[in-house]
Amino acid sequence: MTRPKTDYLWVGVFAVLVTFAVPWFMWRDATVWAGLPVWLWWHVGWMALASVAFYLFTRGAWDRGMNVDGEV
């Protein structure tokens, strides 16, 4: 059984999405932008990014890990 490169790519994408859901590099940072902490804006942007990534996953790779033929 060979797994195409895209499978590993998705595992990588998901790992990055999980890892930086909390912006660890801003730990103890209290910078405020437009009335809210910058780390909160990161959260909003990151969730939007996750949503886009998930959408692309459903388009191209959804059935890969399940051993079933793709269906609409």
Binding site: F14, L17, V18, A21, V22, P23, P37, W39, L40, H43, W46, M47, A50, F54, F57, W62, G65, M66, V68
Partner: peptide, 28 residues
């Protein structure tokens, strides 16, 4: 308000992935 980040990691990303990994398989 850091609970927002906990929720983001927990529900926004991890639960969504589990939705696929557990949920889709259970559905099948």
């Amino acid at each position: 308000p850091e609970w927002i980040l906990v929720m983001g990691l927990m529900d926004g990303v991890l639960f969504a992935l589990l939705w696929y990994v557990v949920g889709y398989r259970q559905w099948l």
